[in-house]
Design a protein around this nucleic acid. Structure first.
Lengths: 142, 142
DNA sequence: GTTCCTGCAAAAGCTTTGCAGAAGA
DNA sequence: TCTTCTGCAAAGCTTTTGCAGGAAC
């Protein structure tokens, strides 16, 4: 059940705690790019003594170790992604859902040629998702 | 002096107020992608009665009209850009400065083909800028 | 005159900090 | 045993809200 995450933490010489395992498992199994609040509310159900500070501490530490990734796509809150490989995100302005977009920026070379050392690449698309477009068509349809 | 911005506001049927003109002029002449706090502190020098709420109100309205653009690059605060054309940004993890990168995403078509309606494209690179890299070399240099 | 804007104060929301006790290695 | 983690409370910041008076048109 948790072996995968125990291994992941050990590989990064991080202490293995139940809270950490819960957070990793949640992020892995719920690829919705949740906020700290969402993670906290979900995990609190099975562990009522969980503190939001612990969630904050852990997502920060996990990110520092490169295990997870944070998204600044929505401006007023950070979102977390179990995937740490390079890909883009699409956020729907109607429903707020965030989708993974498997595209890699082909211009990194150009930016590096101009003297910048790139450590992270974030691509964010904003607009209306398929489902919300369909819903709109249904409502406006003749 | 302000004719340019008066014209811009009129074109968008927005009322012309001194505060609006000041904000537009500041953003146009200081392409550093400032925060609301930075705009407020600067403009307060010549207009001590300026309110931070007014700055918030105006950057929001200007963005809604597509005159300026907001960046979510830094997570804990919004930054504003006078440029509203499509381009990318690079933020230096050392000095915090944000640079414009004139690159257009070549993959928009692919995302739209998968059924998403794209309204905004944001490309953020994070790393170390030229100046900070040089400074590092000087300090570590043999 | 009507509409929209400004600015103040208060509140809200996300995140960080300090610290004592607890748990991991 | 030593180090790190957890959880609580309080504080810090950015941003939003409500509203009365004022300015734009």
């Amino acid at each position: 059940m948790f072996e995968k995450y125990v291994k992941l933490l050990r590989e990064h010489s991080m202490k293995v705690t139940p809270q950490r395992l819960d957070i990793l498992k949640y992020l892995d199994e719920h690829r919705v790019h949740p906020t700290v609040e969402m993670i906290y509310m979900e995990l609190k159900k099975n562990n009522p003594s969980l503190s939001k500070t612990t969630v904050y501490n852990n997502v920060e530490t996990l990110e520092k170790h490169g295990i997870i990734q944070s998204l600044t796509i929505s401006g007023n809150e950070l979102r977390y992604d179990f995937r740490n490989d390079m890909h883009c995100h699409f956020i729907c302005k109607r429903c707020g859902r965030i989708f993974d977009i498997d595209i890699v920026c082909p211009n990194i070379g150009k930016v590096e040629q101009s003297g910048f050392k790139i450590e992270e690449v974030h691509g964010y698309f904003k607009g209306i998702c398929r489902d919300c477009l369909k819903k709109e068509e249904m409502e406006n349809g003749s």
